[in-house]
């Protein structure tokens, strides 16, 4: 093989992106701290000592133990799973679409999940299949169907040569699904509140069953996205350039979209279509730490999880004992925070 011959040269190469240990440690600390806040704060006051006792298996008042183990702990774990998954799925979508405004719902996953959930809420209320409530199932199927539909449509329109065709197909699918959803809601006002409440997002009813239900999907999704960190970095150069580096952009895009959609569909199925996490978390990390996906993906997982645990804690305490939809919190807190980050680092262009 001709070319540059490798001679003895220093192994350490300056300027390669590495996960900064300080940020990684900070992410772990943030996750633990927000989990601590999540389990300590709630509409029912339970002392930190009791929470600790419950966690280490000590003797605790059965009523409080029930609240902690059946309701609060699974909800914190669910918050971490949903937040982490949405954040890395968002980062992955931004990577393969090379579009800073991409989010996990770009190809219609949210519209599909909402339509599926609305269908189930309206036509099969309270039904379950093999012991699992049909609403999350329908949402999962809806999200997957929407993205598959967008892909199929995008292929017929542009042959997947450009991402624009695919994105427009996603927009069209989302609009189409939204119109059906609105029609169903308008013609079945009895279930409108339930489907609306689902759309705004909630981590309310799932419990440990929800955790068990989504875990296989989110683990698989996260693993595949993690394995694509190098390729997502490569996709930051022009499409022709990537191709001439021997990387099939279409294949990477398809695999990453499938993986990200799998995780997104699973978490929206149990958490509703929580907005904003998939955009603000990865972008904040890009602006504050590094734009390499070797940094963005792991830190998005940690900070996305922390962010959603805190958002959910706020959702169940701000107007306690009532709850706010978590999507309201993520957008209300997330948007100004994101603007602040943008303004303070205006040198870095999107």
């Amino acid at each position: 093989m001709l070319g540059v011959r490798a001679r003895a040269a220093p192994l350490a190469l300056a300027g390669l992106p590495r996960l900064p240990w300080l940020w990684a440690a900070g992410g772990v600390v943030a996750l633990l701290a927000s989990a601590a806040v999540g389990v300590l704060v709630g509409p029912v006051h339970i002392s930190p000592g009791t929470v600790l006792q419950a966690l280490i298996g000590g003797s605790v008042d059965p009523g409080q133990a029930n609240i902690l183990w059946s309701l609060r702990f699974p909800r914190v774990v669910l918050g971490a799973i949903v937040g982490g998954t949405l954040a890395i799925a968002g980062a992955a979508y931004q990577g393969v679409f090379r579009n800073p405004l991409a989010d996990p719902y770009l190809l219609g996953a949210a519209a599909g999940a909402n339509l599926g959930a609305t269908f189930a809420v309206t036509f099969a209320p309270g039904a379950s299949l093999i012991g699992v409530n049909v609403v999350p199932m329908a949402a999962f199927v809806g999200a997957g169907a929407a993205v598959a539909g967008a892909y199929a449509l995008g292929r017929t329109v542009s042959g997947l040569r450009s991402t624009t065709g695919l994105i427009l197909a996603g927009v069209a699918i989302a609009a189409f699904f939204n119109s059906i959803e609105t029609y169903i809601q308008q013609t079945h006002p009895a279930s409108i509140r339930e489907s609306y409440s689902w759309i705004l997002g909630r981590l309310v009813t799932a419990g440990w069953d929800g955790v068990v239900l989504v875990l296989p999907y989110v683990v698989l999704s996260a693993a595949v996205i993690f394995l694509h960190r190098r390729l997502l970095d490569a996709l930051m150069v022009g499409e022709d350039e990537v191709t001439s580096l021997g990387i099939s952009v279409r294949r990477v895009r398809l695999i990453v979209v499938i993986a990200a959609t799998l995780g997104t569909a699973a978490v929206v199925a149990i958490g509703g279509t929580i907005a904003f996490v998939g955009i603000i978390i990865p972008h904040t990390i890009r602006l504050l730490v590094n734009r390499s996906y070797r940094v963005v993906i792991p830190l998005s997982l940690l900070f996305g999880a922390s962010f959603l645990i805190l958002a959910d804690t706020a959702a169940r305490t701000v107007v306690a004992p009532a709850e706010l939809p978590i999507g309201v919190i993520t957008a209300f807190v997330g948007a100004p925070f994101f603007i602040a980050v943008l303004r303070s680092t205006r040198a870095a262009a999107l």
Binding site: P17, D233, V237, G238, D240, L245, G246, I247, A348
Partner: peptide, 24 residues
């Protein structure tokens, strides 16, 4: 291939950029 107008990825360092050449 040395492209006519390479797209410069924001924030990418020279060594990371050159390392992309190892992809094949």
């Amino acid at each position: 291939v040395l492209h006519q107008e390479p797209q410069i990825p924001p924030g990418m360092t020279v060594s990371q950029y050159v390392l992309l050449g190892r992809s094949p």
